[in-house]
Nucleic acid binder design. Sequence first.
RNA 1: UGGCCUAUGGUGUAAUUGGCAACACAGCUGGUUUUGGUCCAGUCGUUCUAGGUUCGAGUCCUAGUAGGCCAACCA
Length: 560
Amino acid sequence: MSEGNKSLNFIEHIVEEDLANGYPKKQLRFRFPPEPNGYLHIGHASSICLNFGLGLRYNAPVNLRFDDTNPVKEEKEYVDAIKSDVEWLGYEWDIECYASDYFQQLYDWAILLIKQGKAYVDSQTSEEMAKQKGTPTEPGVNSPFRDRSVEENLELFQGMKQGDFPEGSHVLRAKIDMSASNMLMRDPLMYRVLHKAHHRTDTDWCIYPMYDWTHGESDYIEQVSHSLCTLEFASHRELYDWFLDQVVDPKKVRPKQREFARRNLSHTVVSKRKLLQLVENNMVNGWDDPRMPTISGLRRRGYTPESIRNFADTVGIAKRENLVDVSLLEFHVREHLNKIAPRVMGVLNPIKVVITNYPEGNTEWLKAENNPEDEAAGSREVPFSRELYIEQEDFKEEANRKFFRLKLGGEVRLKNAYIIKAESCSKDAQGNITEIQCTYDPKSKSGSGTEESLRKVKGTLHWVSVPHALSAEVRLYDRLFTDESPDTHKDKDFMDFINPDSLRIITGFLEPGLKDAKIGERFQFQRLGYFTVDPDSTPGKLVFNRTVPLRDTWAKIQEK
RNA sequence: UGGCCUAUGGUGUAAUUGGCAACACAGCUGGUUUUGGUCCAGUCGUUCUAGGUUCGAGUCCUAGUAGGCCAACCA
């Protein structure tokens, strides 16, 4: 992880300031608090990197806490997925915690508040309470149940807990101030009745605590020093502090909530609710579809944990609205894969080349470097024969000097092999080119050291021997949305911007050595991009996902 | 109509806390290259507006403008 003398973000400045003011470094503790109601996405990765990065920087523990107070939406499946995502990103949490572990303590504290006259049972409908709540510009009015006796409150609250009342009949509210300018302080709900089984406490509880009552107290129970959350919780801070005030022991650590802006990524949505919508409407094939900005989707797409961490690190953290361009994410995955991915040859859009002066039936095994960025990666052998596939885009009958590829009468180097010259081509009835006839220079073999082999020819093409080619399914992914910020249009739904061509499935022809490729292995298909073996692969049929194409300056030249 | 938050190149973040506005990405030029990749060199371009304090303001003050958040028995 990159630390050292890098400049600090504003959260680190806050910690540094606390330390400078005498805050004991030993008391530093952070937490990552996901709700297990969906899969983690790239935005969570930023939060994970922030919290665990702080833990690493200050050698402080970081808890993984599941904020599981709503059994209606939460499931164990999500808990397991979240744990494996955090681990995959390369982080180790100190304690695995659950807000549900604190239900009894929270309940006991609630009794205390009732006894102190700071909480009461309200027996109105949610509509009635909403009406009394007022608006941001008008104060609310007190509930008619606000002044129930402590005894009555205690009895009702116990009844709620035991399941004596139906859902919606009663709630427990904190007695604060119905005219507060902060709407959250207008007697916020602490508990609601819910006759639902919880993934951990089963049917033990018929009441469940609300977020505001739970979160700060959980931080306090765990003795978290700095509780970091996103900007929309800024106005919750006042309530966070009020709830803490009711229970805090001055001898213990008092957690401090601070807020940062969530990261938005261009050409996608970063919201569990919207991602769930994509899954449920079958716009993608599940949470780990490689087009999804989820951690599991990026993993399946071929991203490395390092690349995601580096991305989070360079993007940084601040308090203003933002829209990070995906090209930055793509830069980081290319940067890492360039160093570690073995190079191979694969043709995705084939056209046949026949080398007319090459002996029929002959096969030569040619040496090919595995990674020019890493000498230790060694080399392998690839078969060469009379009939080859090259990319259709790499041949034109006629072209100008800017086209460094194969054209009639022109020469080109076949990577790791020979220099060939295009002599003629055949076409079908529609005029489509079906085959290119070439001749090769037998003395130009790569690495042979001959004068001919050292000749400079402008273009180098990748290729695959037709009789040896391994065919595989190749999934080409593009951005999921055509708009850079699909969910910020007032008049349009984000679903209107779905890219209809976000997935193209083709058959590719690969060098035969790839037949033993394992799921999750990553390769650079030379001149094309980075690809990884998808879990859908079977022993007889490989499936490759394109992680990201190589930078393509030729495409830019062509645009002009 | 109220409260809170934010404003620095196209994008994202810095600025020793009042002292020459920098880093990365993207863009553009060139060089190297058996990947039009990588790598190398260069280049473009920034403090929302108006006042004020100060020898000096991105930073402090005032006013304005723009954007975001806040009225779920969600988190």
